[in-house]
C-alpha cells in the first residue's frame, strides 16, 4: 500500500491583502470588492523576488527531514502551469541539486491543473511498489510560480498566490496509508479557460455529477462511505466554486475551505497544503478517512482517501 511518510507545505513570509494584490494586478475597485465579498479572499502570501525553486525547496527539505537522500529513488515535480512561458527547463534539475537528489529519477507530471498532486503521489507510489524495496522512497514536490498576469489572475475569479507542498512517499511504510485513488478526465473540456461559453456551461453542468461519481468510487475502493469521511480537502480557488460543484450542503460543510481567505489559491499545491493546515491545527481525528479531492481545469477529477493515525498527527477528541 502506498504510504505518505511526510506531508509538508511552505508559504513565503510576506503577506499582502487582497486589496494590495489587486492593485498590483491592476484590478478595478469593483473587481477587488468581488474578490473580498463574493469570492472570500482576505489576504495571501506573495513574494515576487522568490522563484519557484526557492519556494519548493523549504517544503521538500521538511518532508525529507530524517531521510537519507540516498533512499530517495524518484523525484516527481507536480505543477499545474504547463505553458513554455511559465517554467524554466532547468527547474527540476536545480531542485534536485539543492536537495542532494541528483541521483534520483526526476521528472515532472502536469496537465491536470489543480488535480495533479494526487496523480503524482500515485505515480511515485506505484514506481516504488513495482521495485519492491521497502527502504526506497519517492519525493513529490508540488508548486507553481505564475509569471504572466494571465496565470496570476485566472478568469477574474482566482488570484494565484505563493505556496508549495511536498510529500515523501513509501510502499508499505509507517506513514499515512493511501486507501484509494480514483481519477477521471473529461477531455472534451481540454480547451480550459479558452473554452467557448457553451463548453463552459456544459463543464459547469457536468462538474457536480462527475465529482460525486469519482468521490463515490474513491470511498467504495477504500471500503468506506462518504458519511465516514471527516474532511474533504480540496484546492482553494474561491468560495463560490465549491458552492456550485458540491450542491449538497451537509457534504460541503465537511469541505475544508478555511485557507481560502488566508492563502487564496496556490494551484496544484493547495490540496496538500490544506491537509497540512488541518494537521497543524489538530483538526484530524485518528483512524477516520480523509479525502483529498480536486477538479483540475481541462477537466480532471481526482479523489484520494487517506487515513491518518495518531502517529501521523491526528488527535483524538
Amino acid at each position: 500500500m502506498i504510504t505518505l511518510e511526510a506531508i509538508e507545505s511552505h508559504f513565503p513570509a510576506r503577506t499582502v491583502s487582497v486589496e494590495d494584490r489587486a492593485a498590483e494586478l491592476g484590478l478595478t475597485a469593483e473587481q477587488t470588492h468581488m474578490f473580498r465579498r463574493h469570492f472570500g479572499i482576505d489576504r495571501m502570501r506573495y513574494e515576487p523576488s522568490l522563484g519557484i525553486v526557492e519556494q519548493l525547496v523549504p517544503a521538500a527539505e521538511r518532508a525529507l527531514a530524517g531521510t537519507s537522500p540516498a533512499a530517495v529513488r524518484h523525484l516527481v515535480f507536480a505543477h499545474a502551469l504547463h505553458g513554455a512561458d511559465q517554467l524554466s527547463p532547468d527547474t527540476l534539475r536545480e531542485v534536485a541539486r539543492r536537495l542532494g537528489l541528483e541521483h534520483a529519477n526526476a521528472f515532472a507530471v502536469t496537465q491536470q491543473n489543480c488535480a495533479v498532486s494526487m496523480s503524482a503521489l500515485d505515480i511515485a507510489g506505484t514506481l516504488l511498489q513495482a521495485e519492491e524495496d521497502p527502504s526506497a522512497r519517492a519525493l513529490v514536490v508540488v508548486g507553481d510560480k505564475p509569471l504572466t498576469q494571465e496565470a496570476q489572475l485566472i478568469m477574474n475569479t482566482c488570484v494565484v498566490a505563493d505556496g508549495t507542498a511536498a510529500a515523501l512517499v513509501a510502499n508499505d511504510g509507517p506513514g499515512v496509508p493511501v486507501r484509494s485513488f480514483a481519477t477521471r478526465t473529461l477531455g472534451q473540456f481540454s480547451d480550459g479557460v479558452l473554452s467557448t461559453p457553451e463548453t463552459f456551461r456544459a463543464a459547469a453542468e457536468a462538474r457536480p455529477r462527475v465529482l460525486a461519481e469519482v468521490m463515490e468510487e474513491a470511498v467504495r475502493s477504500a471500503g468506506c462511505t462518504l458519511d465516514d469521511v471527516q474532511w474533504f480537502v480540496p484546492p482553494s480557488p474561491n468560495l463560490v466554486f465549491w458552492q456550485d460543484a458540491v450542491p449538497d450542503d451537509e457534504l460541503r460543510a465537511r469541505f475544508f475551505l478555511d485557507n481560502i481567505p488566508r492563502y487564496s489559491h496556490c494551484l496544484a499545491a493547495d490540496v496538500l497544503a490544506n491537509y497540512v493546515t488541518l494537521r497543524e491545527e489538530k483538526r484530524l481525528e485518528p483512524d477516520r478517512p480523509v479525502m483529498l479531492v480536486a477538479i483540475g481545469v481541462g477537466m480532471t477529477f481526482s479523489a484520494m482517501v487517506v487515513v491518518p493515525g495518531t502517529e501521523h498527527g491526528a488527535v483524538a477528541r
Partner: peptide, 19 residues
C-alpha cells in the same frame, strides 16, 4: 513545452482514445 499553456493536450488525447 507547448508555447500555448491553456489546452491540456493530455486530456484531449485521453478523450480521443476512449476517455
Amino acid at each position: 513545452a507547448d508555447p500555448q499553456g491553456h489546452k491540456t493536450t493530455a486530456s484531449h488525447l485521453n478523450h480521443r482514445t476512449g476517455g
